[in-house]
Nucleic acid binder design. Structure first.
Lengths: 83, 83
DNA sequence: ATTGATTTGTTCGTATGTATT
DNA sequence: TAATACATACGAACAAATCAA
């Protein structure tokens, strides 16, 4: 499994699919591709938002979804870890 | 004045009266019944929306009405206070 | 012990698009 | 046409936790 470079995936605001769902897939791909190994921190919400040109809240929405699925885990003041 | 339990009032989506107006009455009752005293925070928009099974925007619509009437006051990032 | 920077979660106001009535 | 209702999306603000200087 290769390594997904930043910007390899982009967000389409005009796609029928909601942006937050696209972000779920983007982050999931970061994990499954091995770009962010188990136990490691994801980029910060702010970083992801800037990188993919979406809002703060949209990234948080996506992360909340992945957290509920048990794919990531949050530590307040630290960041979001891959489980 | 008694205490209104959660769910004591329900929203009827099939009533002729708009849902947002029903929500105005629900929130007003929370205040006049003393469930939420002066100076205290109302439940969050999200909480109210889930509790009464209406959309986010509908709760906000109702709150905008009550705000204009001077019954509640908003502090961004905190919540909606009873005046 | 304090301060400042970073991070997440939560909060609300506003705006847009779609569907329904 | 207009009002209603929902889902989505953005922007901004606040509190609390963490960490480093």
């Amino acid at each position: 499994m290769g390594c997904l470079r930043w910007g390899a995936v982009t967000i389409d605001h005009d796609a029928g699919e909601p942006v937050w769902q696209q972000m779920v897939r983007v982050i999931r791909d970061m994990i499954t591709s091995g770009e962010v190994p188990k136990g490691k921190l994801l980029p910060s919400v702010r970083t992801l938002a800037q990188r993919y040109e979406v809002s703060d809240g949209t990234v948080k929405h996506a992360l909340a979804e992945l957290r509920q699925e048990g794919l990531v885990e949050t530590v307040n003041g630290r960041g979001v870890y891959v489980r």
